[in-house]
Amino acid sequence: MIVVARPAVLLTAGLLATALLTTVAGCSSTVRVEPPRPTGDAAAACRALDAALPRTVDGLDRVATEPPSPYVAVWGEGEIALRCGVDRPATMAPTAEVSDINGVGWFQDPRVPTLFTAVNRVAYVEVTVSRAHAPGDVLVDLATPIKAKVPEG
């Protein structure tokens, strides 16, 4: 079930596939995202990544999430969402094509073309990009902190 309170927000199918998102009314937008539950090295890398993420991605400011989590970051009103420490993508076969963007390998889910996952790291980092944004621009913005804070695995 998806609940949208004031202000209304249009969410893409990719964001819906990633997590349950809800905009909560208030002075500033808060987006509801179910955080993953990484452990060990993955959890430590995700916490380090959270502190290194940019305040702005592709012209959108980072907004608060509910519940607050070091494993989730959202920019705009749910237009770009990052979840660190997710499971390996179920649709990623051993022979799947992975695109390298600034030293980070990205798998694009063939079923959800707005969903990208950074792979070959101690933690999988999932990024959902609304169709209003160029995925390449977003992934370039996020590659540097991912490469710096989430070691190859």
Rank of each mutant, 00 (worst) to 15 (best):
D50V: 00
A52E: 13
T30G: 02
P110E: 04
A45T: 10
V72I: 02
W106H: 09
V74A: 00
L15Q: 07
L21Q: 13
I80Q: 05
T128V: 14
Y71W: 10
R83H: 07
G105F: 06
F116S: 09
L49N: 02
R83Y: 06
T91K: 09
V98R: 12
S69P: 06
N120K: 07
Q108L: 12
G40P: 11
L82N: 06
A73R: 14
A19K: 03
T91D: 12
A123V: 13
G26L: 01
P36I: 03
V125W: 11
E79P: 03
V57Y: 04
T18E: 14
A25G: 07
A51Y: 02
P54M: 05
A44V: 12
Y124H: 14
A43M: 05
S99H: 12
S69D: 07
S29N: 07
V72R: 03
V86S: 08
P67W: 00
E66M: 05
L49M: 02
E97D: 14
L21P: 07
A42D: 06
R131P: 00
V74C: 00
A52W: 09
F107N: 01
E126A: 11
V98N: 10
V119L: 02
T91R: 05
L82R: 02
G14P: 02
P35C: 05
L49Y: 01
W75K: 01
G59C: 12
V104K: 07
R62C: 03
L115N: 11
A17L: 09
D58I: 04
A44W: 01
A45L: 05
V57T: 10
P38S: 11
R83K: 08
I101G: 06
R62F: 05
V98L: 15
R111A: 14
C27L: 13
E66Q: 09
M92H: 07
G76V: 01
D100S: 11
T95F: 13
A19L: 07
P38L: 15
C84F: 10
T114R: 06
A17D: 15
L15W: 07
S28N: 10
P113F: 13
P38D: 10
S28W: 08
G40H: 10
A51D: 13
P54I: 14
V24D: 05
S69T: 05
E79I: 09
V127W: 09
P94F: 14
L82V: 15
R62L: 05
Y71D: 13
R83Q: 11
L49H: 01
T39H: 07
R47S: 14
L60W: 03
A90M: 10
D87V: 06
N120R: 10
